[in-house]
Structures are given as structure tokens and as C-alpha cells.
Nucleic acid binder design. Structure first.
Lengths: 344, 344
DNA sequence: CTGAAAGCGCTTACAG
DNA sequence: CTGAAAGCGCTTACAG
């Protein structure tokens, strides 16, 4: 009922080797033979069995993606789609391993459940450490990183430059005359595996440090709370002196704010400038000034490099930094007293 | 270097059959033997080879998901995560097949590239027709649908009731006193594969039909345009008489509107009520009245049923309708002249 | 509860 | 360009 390579060989009057080659290396079989085989395969509704091909050829045709994010977010959704767009047509499945907490992390890197069962691993925005990378390397397969803390140990990495991005943001605010700037972030203690939250705050503080007349403050709230936006609002409104600009860790934090601030009598950008990070869903429509990045491109580049590494070629360059830019829109403006003086 | 089941058998002093059973059916091997095997496996960094297991056991440990959506959206991202959460721990990979246009659709259902290579197929929000379902069934594997046009031919389906949902929405507006209601949707001619866009409009029109004093109108715009929100705005503002309420096909359409309408001098909900559909990202924060649905639950239920069907048990019930509810929030209010009279 | 053995459906050197 | 043949690493009836 389900036909095998033997059935096709018989029907086409060739050997199974030829049938196999017709699918795996069509260039080495003659046009005439190829046509015969293809016709027979079609008549018999034949597909190559991936499991058999995998077993014999010592490949798994699977690529693992490691991530720590529990919920559906814009960044990961775009990464996944881009990976699938490149890897699927090339014959690879993507298996997503979500590591949600310290126990899972420990278990994963100790057991390495992927050993022998994937052809490459992509580490996505995960705060992986040196020992963990070493463990991964024991599998003797390519290891590719997307937004990882360091490129050390990786066969290829694709990242954005958080520091440069934050510098763009802070310089823009400084140019406008802002001197009191708040950074809003979720408490990283709650999300120890997610890379970039901590980094981004550090980048903000460093960027402010370039200007000795600029006072950065930080508003930290617990992560994944339903009322995150209310907490932030409350903290901001009670700060004294009130900062003239708010840099948010991501658009997802900024968008609720630009909706709610006016309802608290604080006009955006007249009374306070608000900035996001990502240029994600709705950012353009709500005119949010933000840093544009493209997880889709990060994903494409990562997938392409993964494929190259599997085929044994070294991607050029091995470590790529994708450019970001400041999407200048309507939520930033000069502060009310734009003389650069503090009004305290 | 890479150890096989033979190495483990030798080290543990048992047969390969016992090693195999230790992993696939641990209940049938004695505690003592199991411990020996597990220890040997650990010492040798051994994992079962999926390809070999798959080949011999005539399973592929893969589940296909068919979808037509090109871009990352809230619904699909949540579906994917839920499917992965259930299927991955059960040992199944998910391979996502995206069918973007008529040619791909034709090719896919004619060739059935998954034949012999997946254990089940999940059809997600795809406007699949009877012939296509028949084709799928030729593979002799379970076929599960999420939001498909009809449950006919499916081994299991999970859906929401679009009609009932839309009735909730329209009745709420009618109760408030609205009689002129617009439905905003993207042009389905551009997206012939996506199921639910057309259906939702039909549901809206039917729901309005329940009230003979209510006049529905439709604003249709091309899909996936960058300036979709501006087109809608322009159409709405030039309509005469201007509807007192706008029902949007999804939150993604509604959210830009509730941001932009006030900037055109139209206050929400004072001058116009706006409703979404989904209860997706930011809906709560921007106080959008909308229909709540949970793609996560749809995904979990679909995955659970898929697993049951693979194991040969029939899910109960086979066809499940997930409840939705009206999330009553701040973007709906009585129309300005709430006497139910038309002011034309 | 455990073992010996057949075989799942391919790929790939090797030979011609 | 094509074929004969070995074997990838498991699972699973069957026997004990």
C-alpha cells in the first residue's frame, strides 16, 4: 500500500540505487532515467522516507532551537518564521526547546537530550555561559547564536549592538535637551535565562555616562505581571523631580504607557518623551520613537549560516552584527523647559 | 565515539533488546536491570537514535501543521507554542508547512510531500475544501482541524463559534443603542487561503440581521497594506451618515484606530464605539472592548487530540467548540443620541 | 522479565 | 551513468 524505493525501482526498471540518486543527487543520473523514475514515483505516490534516509546517511535533518521565552512574543515569533522559511525548504525540521527555569537548564545541559539527534543547534537570546557552550560543543555539531552574550565558542553568531543602539536613543534625547531620563525594565531576577534585558539597561546607563550633565534613573518592575503598566505609571508619576523622558526596555512596555499617560494628565510628548525598543507591532501606527531591529533578518542570517556550517563551509563573516536604526516618530520632543537646566 | 545501543548493552551486561525496552517501555524491565542500563547509558552519553527508532517502528515522530499565514501574528504564535508544549515532550517534532498562494496550494495537495513522513497533520485556520481533505486522508493518518470551515472529513476539530461571538458583539452594541454599525475587514480576495476573515464578516451581517432596526455597512481594505489604518480611517470619516460603532475583524485593526481616531477629532467611545476581536496583545491595556479567545487553549486541545488519535484512541468529543466571551472594556459606550433614532 | 534474530527503507562506497 | 550489496541503529514478535 505504501510504496517503497523497491517498488519504484521495479516499476521504472532500474535499481534502487538509481531511484535513491534520482532524489538525492539528480545531477548524477541521466535525463531519461530520471524521467522514468520520477514518473514511476508519481504513479506510486512515492516519497523518500526521511527516517530511512536519516539513519543511513547519519544525519537527522533536524535543527534544535534553544530559547527561554515562555510566551508568544514578537521577536521569537519572527525568528521562528524566518528559521522555518530557510530550513524547511532545505529539508530540516526545527525542534524548539524551551528552557524555562534553572532546573530545566541544569537538566538540559547535563543530559543533552539532542545528542545524535540534531544536525545543529541555534541558541536564541539565551544567557548561556561558557560551560554550557562547551557542553553543547561536545555534540560535534555546529552551534549558532542569536543575540548571545559572547561569540566565544560559537561557530557563528548574529546579534545587534545593544550599546550602539542605546547610544542612538540617548543621544537623540540629549540633543532634544533631555537631562533627566528614566529607564524602565522588568526585574531580571525573575527571568534569569533571558539574555538582553540586563544588557540593555547596562547599555542605557553607559550611554548616559557619555554625557556628564545627564542623570539616568531606573524603574524596575517584576516581570510578567498583569498590571506591569500600572506599576510603572505609579512609579513614574511619584518620582520627584519627574524625568522628562522614559526609555523602555521594549515597545511592549512603551505602548501601554503612551496610551495611559495622557489619561493621567501627562501629555506625550509635551510633558514626557517616551521611547521603545524593537519597532514591533503597532509601533509605527502609534507613532512611537523606537530602535528598529529585524528579528526576521536575524533569523534568516542565522538559518543560512547554520546550513552552511552543516555543509562544512565556513560562513563569512562568522560573527555578524545587524544594524539597527533610530525610528524617529512622534513620541519624542524637546522637554518643556528645554534650556538644559534642572528645574529642582 | 558516539555510542550506540550495543555499547550500552555490553557495558550493562544485557541484550540490546533490554536496552531498547528500558527507554521505550521501562515498565516491562525490572528495576535492577533498568538502573544498570540507565547508569551505563549515562556513562556513555547515550541517547536513543530517533531515526533508527522511527525507521523500525514505522512512525516518524513528526506532526505537520498546515497554515497560510505569512507573517508572525498573535494567533499563530500562540498556537505554535501550545502545540510545541504538548507535542515536544511526547516526542514529536512539529513541521510547519506554510501555503502562501494558489500555486503552492495546488502543488502541496497534489504531491502530498508528507506522505509516509508524518504521523498526523493539523490544519490551522486554513480554508481547506472537501477534495483537499480527501487527499489528506489518503495518507491514512489523523487529520485535525483548528478553525476549519467544516468538521466534515476531520478526525477531530477545535474551533470557536464565529456566529455566536459576533452575536455577543452586535447585541452589546444594540443594547447600547447603536443602529448604524460598520464592519472593517481586509479584502479576502488577497488572502484566499486564510479561513475566518470571510466567515467573520458573514457572521457580523447575520448578527445584525437579527435586529430589523440595525443597518450594517462594510469597510473593505486591501490586506497587508502598510497604510491599512489610514485607508480605514479615511473611509470611515467620509461615510455619511457616519456609523456610531466600528466592529473590527481583529484587534490588530482596532488598536491603530483607537489611537488615531482622537487625532482626527473623533473621540472614542464618545463619538464612536470601537470593537476588536481576539483579546490579543495590548487589548487590555488600551481598554479595548473585544471578543476574548484563547489560541493557546485551541492549540493545547488540538495537540492533545492529535496525540490521542495517533495512539488510536478517539478523542471525546471529536469536535469541540471553545467558548469565547465579550471582554467589556472602555471603547464602547452609548451613541451620542442614544434614543435609537437615526439622525439623518 | 530477558535474549536472539529479523528487518524497517534507505545511502553509498565500490565496481563496471 | 548504473547496479549489487553492505549496513545505518534501532524495535518487536517470538521463545524461553
Amino acid at each position: 500500500m505504501k510504496s517503497t524505493i523497491h517498488d519504484v525501482a521495479e516499476k521504472a526498471g532500474v535499481s534502487v540505487a538509481t531511484v535513491s540518486r534520482t532524489f538525492s543527487r539528480p545531477d548524477v543520473v541521466s535525463q531519461t532515467t530520471r524521467d522514468k523514475v520520477l514518473q514511476a514515483a508519481k504513479d506510486l505516490d512515492f516519497n523518500i522516507s526521511r527516517s530511512a534516509a536519516a539513519l543511513k546517511s547519519q544525519q537527522s535533518f533536524r535543527v534544535a532551537m534553544l530559547t527561554s521565552e515562555a510566551h508568544a512574543n514578537w521577536f521569537n515569533a519572527n525568528i521562528s518564521i524566518a528559521l522555518n522559511d530557510v530550513l524547511q525548504p532545505a529539508g530540516y525540521d526545527i525542534c524548539t526547546y524551551r528552557i524555562a527555569n534553572a532546573a530545566e537548564r541544569q537538566a538540559f545541559f547535563a543530559d543533552l537530550p539532542l545528542r545524535r539527534n540534531v544536525d545543529a543547534v541555534i541558541v536564541n537570546s539565551f544567557s548561556i555561559d561558557g560551560d554550557e557552550i562547551s557542553n553543547l560543543k561536545k555534540m560535534n555539531i555546529p552551534v549558532v547564536g542569536i543575540n548571545v552574550p559572547s561569540s566565544a565558542g560559537f561557530d557563528a553568531t548574529i546579534s545587534i549592538d545593544e550599546y550602539e543602539s542605546m547610544r542612538l536613543l540617548v543621544r537623540h534625547l540629549h540633543d532634544l535637551g533631555h537631562r533627566d531620563i528614566s529607564f524602565v525594565c522588568s526585574n531580571s531576577a525573575q527571568a534569569p535565562l533571558r539574555y538582553s534585558a540586563d544588557l540593555r539597561m547596562d547599555a542605557f546607563l553607559r550611554a548616559c555616562h557619555d554625557f556628564d550633565d545627564t542623570t539616568p534613573t531606573v524603574i524596575r518592575v517584576p516581570r510578567d505581571k498583569e498590571n506591569e503598566d500600572e506599576l510603572i505609571l505609579s512609579r513614574f508619576l511619584t518620582q520627584s523631580p519627574r524625568p522628562t523622558a522614559i526609555c523602555c526596555q521594549s515597545d511592549a512596555t512603551a505602548i501601554p504607557l503612551i496610551f495611559k499617560l495622557p489619561r493621567c494628565g501627562v501629555s506625550v510628548p509635551r510633558d514626557v518623551s517616551v521611547l521603545g525598543f524593537d519597532d514591533s507591532t503597532y509601533a509605527r501606527q502609534v507613532e512611537l520613537t523606537t530602535i528598529h531591529q529585524s528579528p526576521e533578518e536575524l533569523g534568516y542570517e542565522a538559518a543560512r549560516r547554520t546550513l552552511q556550517l552543516i555543509q562544512g563551509t565556513c560562513p563569512e563573516p562568522r560573527h555578524l552584527t545587524m544594524e539597527t536604526y533610530l525610528a524617529l516618530r512622534g513620541t519624542t520632543a524637546p522637554p518643556r523647559s528645554s534650556n538644559g537646566q534642572r528645574n529642582d
